[in-house]
Amino acid sequence: MSLPLTGHHVAVLLGGPSSEREVSLVSGAACADALERLGAKVSRVDAGADIAQVLTGLKPDVCFNALHGPWGEDGCVQGVLETLGIPYTHCGVLASALAMDKAKSKAVLAAAGVAVPGGGLYNRFEAAKAHVMPPPYVVKPNAEGSSVGVFLVFEGANGPPQEIVAPDWTYGEEVMIEPYVRGLELAVGVMDGKAITVTEIVPKTGFYDYESKYGEGGSEHIVPARMPPHALEKAKKLSEMAHAALGCRGVTRSDLRYDDINDIMVLLEVNTQPGMTPTSLVPEQAAAQGVSFDQLVLWITEDAYARGGAGRIASSGEASGQSAPER
């Protein structure tokens, strides 16, 4: 019996020019390996300015977008793929652009009834002069991922982080500043509009920064999170609401904070292209529900192919079909 993707050509977009290039290379390699195990012809494409020309020459049946960060995750590459008429994984142009812009996505989410932190956008030079709100608070770029350029300002801090006005700052002229919500760091994967489960993240450094996310042993993931049943359900519900409000499709991951003392939960942001590295949260959540990494990659690919109007990929595997695997 043939493998699920036998006879199909998948271009895996990886790398790219963003600050999250290294993570994307690892995600893309893992997904490309899985696609090959599933029988696909795979072209690994390190996405650059010539992406349209490269894909026009390759003529893939579908693109698996494993890019992270600006350009690959903010609607730009999605627009190129729409123009070329190539089916692609994850969210479309508008949802990608909205989710990457923290200020705009927060406005949409709040209007949809999703609890989000307060705060707002500030010019980075103004924000560096004096505290714009009483500490503790969080400073982050408005359009980056993977906790790149994020600073936690603790109570008693003499002033704002001066890194945001350093000459090597490349994350835009405006920064998002939000009140810090104490408590548990949570992540919820959403697949086909339904929450998978809730992960509690315990960073070894006390802050879930880039190293905690991607470094070996940088954080402990507890699945499911150690929370009361009502809080687990609320995390799932908020994540499903956010996925729908932004017009997302395929697989997303929402990041949340839960103040377990005061029973307050807020949704921080929605990641439209969750990491697919060995330490990534969505593959780990899927595995906890009995969905293997290869099954997850197959479902994401099938979902994109079906939406592209080419019909469902003929599959003999458990993850075949247009609905998500049982979770």
Rank of each mutant, 00 (worst) to 15 (best):
L186Y: 12
M227Q: 06
L84W: 11
V45H: 02
R253N: 06
R307Y: 04
S254C: 15
R182T: 13
V42W: 14
A288R: 15
N271E: 06
S96T: 07
E144M: 14
F151N: 11
G69W: 08
C31L: 09
E163T: 02
K236C: 14
Y258W: 12
S280E: 05
E211Y: 12
S320Q: 14
V114H: 07
V153S: 08
L35Y: 10
P167Y: 06
G79Q: 02
S323E: 09
A99I: 10
Y305T: 07
Y122D: 03
D209N: 15
Q289G: 14
V108I: 14
L3V: 00
V270D: 04
G218H: 06
Y305F: 15
C63A: 12
V80S: 05
I313K: 00
G218T: 07
V10H: 05
R226Q: 15
L58S: 05
E284H: 13
K237T: 13
E82G: 05
T197S: 15
K104G: 00
V175F: 09
P87R: 03
A235F: 10
A66S: 11
V251T: 11
A110P: 00
E220H: 01
V62E: 01
T83N: 11
V175G: 08
S292K: 12
E82H: 12
E73H: 08
V77N: 10
E269I: 01
V266E: 02
A287H: 05
G309Y: 08
A225G: 08
D101W: 14
C91L: 06
Y137M: 04
V150A: 07
L81H: 08
E326S: 13
A52N: 13
V148K: 06
G119A: 13
G28F: 07
G48C: 05
V188W: 08
A115T: 08
K236Y: 07
F125Y: 09
L256V: 03
V12I: 01
R327P: 01
E240G: 09
V150L: 12
F154V: 10
K59M: 13
G159C: 05
W169G: 04
D263M: 03
S27R: 08
K102N: 07
G159E: 04
E233D: 15
L81V: 10
V282T: 14
K129P: 01
G120L: 07
R257V: 05
K106G: 01
G118C: 03
G79W: 03
V297I: 15
E240M: 13
S146Q: 11
Y210S: 10
V138K: 07
L38N: 12
S219Y: 04
N123Y: 08
G16C: 01
S212I: 00
A29V: 00
V291C: 03
R327W: 13
S316C: 04
D263K: 09
G7T: 02
L98V: 13
T272Y: 11
A319R: 05
T277D: 08
R257C: 09
A143R: 14
H9L: 11
S315N: 02
A29L: 03
V54A: 15
V175E: 07
